[in-house]
Every structure is written in structure tokens, then in C-alpha cells.
Amino acid sequence: MREYKPKGDVQAKAYYSDRFWVAPQLPTFSVDSDEIFAEQSKKINENFEVIKEYIQTGHLVVEVKAEDNKDAVAFFKDELGYNFLMEIAAVDFLEKRGVFEIVYEMLSTTTKKRARIKCCLRENQALESVNDHFRMADWSEREMYDLSGVKINNHPYLKRIIMPDDWQGHPLRKDYPMIGDEAAQWYEVDKIFGKEYRDVIGPENRDQARVDRFDTQRYSKIKHEVPKGAEFSDTKTDFGDYQEKDGVFLVTKLKKEDSVQLKERR
């Protein structure tokens, strides 16, 4: 019987885990432990429904509802003085919890503090674009749409950015294998030569540990290339010298004994 492998999450897994292993947690602190954050948190709570808030590795982490994302980013920008939106990332928790976690990394250059706005997005729920407040979201959200398949509402130009337009699938989802699905593996052959050429080119060699015992012999020797599949003639190629024995017309023959070794680089 073939071993069952879950298809929803094909990320690499540890091949052995101790049954009694309990993963430690990165310490989190309450927002009151930092003066600036405590004050900001009070303001946030007045305006938004906060699901979770804590401080982790010096960042204020606030989880809001997915519908509030645009307002929250605007609030952080206008009221709390976080003038830079540094990064938007989507984390795929579809298999585990059925949601995407969207992370907004914000930076305030006045207080030198960083905050992270998080929201959980259901699979078919669309996210509101924050492009009106930060132009950088234009590209970030396109990237998110392209690689994770998060749908964005009111985006000025929602189009694949990293992958080609005719690509199938969203590579950063957990159900997408690292080496790609079939469409991905034949993408360039199909596009350039056509599907019927697949047999000629052959499948990709994805086995990193593959050892071909002819590897050391079967590279085409200079001037002795043969068509694929033909026998390799046993010829000797002199790799030792850069030039032919009797030299090349008008080209100075390199003599090893004439070369000088420098003591110091210059």
C-alpha cells in the first residue's frame, strides 16, 4: 500500500519528532509593560475591536478583524504616527485553521517603535487594499495575490507580478509543492517548443542525489560531440594546455616558465 500523504500541506516535515516534545513559546508580554505601547493600545481599543494584543520581541502585535484592516492601517498612520509600512506578508494557515494571516509591519520613525497589525482572512474572503494610504501596498498586495492567492478589493492594478501571467497556481500556498506541479515543470518546454516536444526534451532531473556512473566519461569531448544516445568514441583530449602544441598563428604562446608569480596582489 502506498503511504498516505496529506495534500493540503506539502511543506517539508521533520522526519522524526519526540512524542513528548513540547515546543517552547517565544515570550510575549502584556502591552502595559511598555509606556508608549500602553498608551497606543488604549487608543486602538477605543476605535477597533481588538482580538489579541501583546508585545513580542519588542514589537507591538495587534490582531484586528479582517474587515478593519484598512482603517487600522490608516489609524496607525494618522493617529499613532507609524509613518512607514514596511512589509505586508500573508501566512498560509488554510490547512490548519482555514485562514490566511495577513501581517502588516509598521515603523514609526519618531518613537522608533515597530508594530505589527495582524488579521485573519478566510479563504474566499477578499481583503481591502491599503493602497490609498501607502503606495507600497500596490506592489506588496500584487505579490500577495500572485504568490499566495489572496484576493484584494479596490486595488488599482491587480495582476500577477512575480510569476508569468499564464502561470497556474499560487506557489507560496502550503499545498503547492516546492518543485512545482505538472504545469510548472513543463512550463518552458510547452511555451517554447510546444507540448509534443516534451518527449524529446524529457522530464527535469529533480533528484539532487542522482549519480550517473557515466558522468565522468559521458560529457561531450571537444570536437567529438555525438548525437544523443550514440556511442561515445574513446578519444583523448588534452586539457592540460590552453593552446595547441605548435601554437596559434600570431598569438603569443604562453610558456609556463616565463610567467611571474607576484608576491603581492596589485
Binding site: P177, M178, D181, A184, N205, R206
Partner: peptide, 18 residues
Amino acid sequence: NTGGMFNTYATVQGVDRI
């Protein structure tokens, strides 16, 4: 030559395929 360390969906596994 072979795709090298990038054994991923986005990399052509050797330019000699093209």
C-alpha cells in the same frame, strides 16, 4: 548548468533544456 541549488518551481533545471 543544472538549476543548481534552486530546485524549485520557478527555475529551469539547466539552460540546455532550451
